Amino acid sequence: MAIARRILPEEITVQIPPNLVMEPEILLKCLEAGARDLGGIGPQDVVNPDYPHINPETLSQIINRKGWQLQRRLPIYPQYDSWLSPRLQRSVNSWRKKLQFPQRL
């Protein structure tokens, strides 16, 4: 994670799915090294179904120990909104305003 953060441009957000990290301490070290996205957290990982997600409450407890907080986000980052059709852009903007999603995690 530290190497990825060092070589990638700052505008690239590095994701670490917590269900693929078996030890909470390793997850915390990934966050400390620069990971800023935990991916989609849900009842089932359709890409990696053999690796169930930690429930959000437990995940919050793990990351809160080091001062981190879970934040909701849409599945698209704001810097890529222009790739969407105008109709989807309006919908995304509406959701961001309605749910007060952060512009950057």
Rank of each mutant, 00 (worst) to 15 (best):
16 I>A: 15
26 I>R: 11
89 Q>C: 04
2 A>S: 12
91 S>G: 01
83 W>D: 10
103 Q>V: 07
52 P>W: 01
38 L>Q: 01
14 V>R: 01
23 E>S: 09
80 Y>P: 00
78 P>I: 05
39 G>Q: 07
4 A>E: 06
38 L>A: 02
83 W>S: 10
20 L>Q: 12
84 L>C: 08
39 G>M: 06
28 L>A: 05
63 I>C: 01
7 I>G: 08
1 M>D: 10
81 D>I: 06
77 Y>H: 09
20 L>W: 07
70 L>Y: 04
70 L>H: 05
12 I>V: 15
42 G>Q: 04
5 R>S: 10
76 I>V: 15
101 F>M: 15
5 R>N: 15
64 N>Y: 04
52 P>F: 01
23 E>F: 12
74 L>R: 02
78 P>Y: 01
64 N>R: 14
100 Q>L: 10
104 R>L: 12
105 L>Y: 12
52 P>M: 03
103 Q>N: 12
63 I>P: 00
88 L>Q: 11
4 A>K: 09
103 Q>S: 13
88 L>M: 11
78 P>F: 01
51 Y>A: 14
23 E>V: 11
67 G>I: 09
60 S>K: 14
38 L>E: 01
22 M>D: 10
15 Q>D: 03
11 E>M: 03
77 Y>P: 00
87 R>I: 09
90 R>C: 03
25 E>T: 04
76 I>W: 04
45 D>Y: 04
60 S>V: 05
9 P>T: 07
29 K>S: 13
4 A>H: 08
58 T>I: 12
56 P>W: 04
89 Q>L: 10
77 Y>R: 14
61 Q>D: 12
101 F>Q: 02
82 S>A: 14
33 A>Q: 13
29 K>G: 02
67 G>H: 08
105 L>S: 13
78 P>R: 13
105 L>P: 09
5 R>D: 11
92 V>Q: 06
96 R>V: 08
33 A>D: 15
67 G>C: 08
8 L>P: 01
13 T>F: 03
61 Q>W: 08
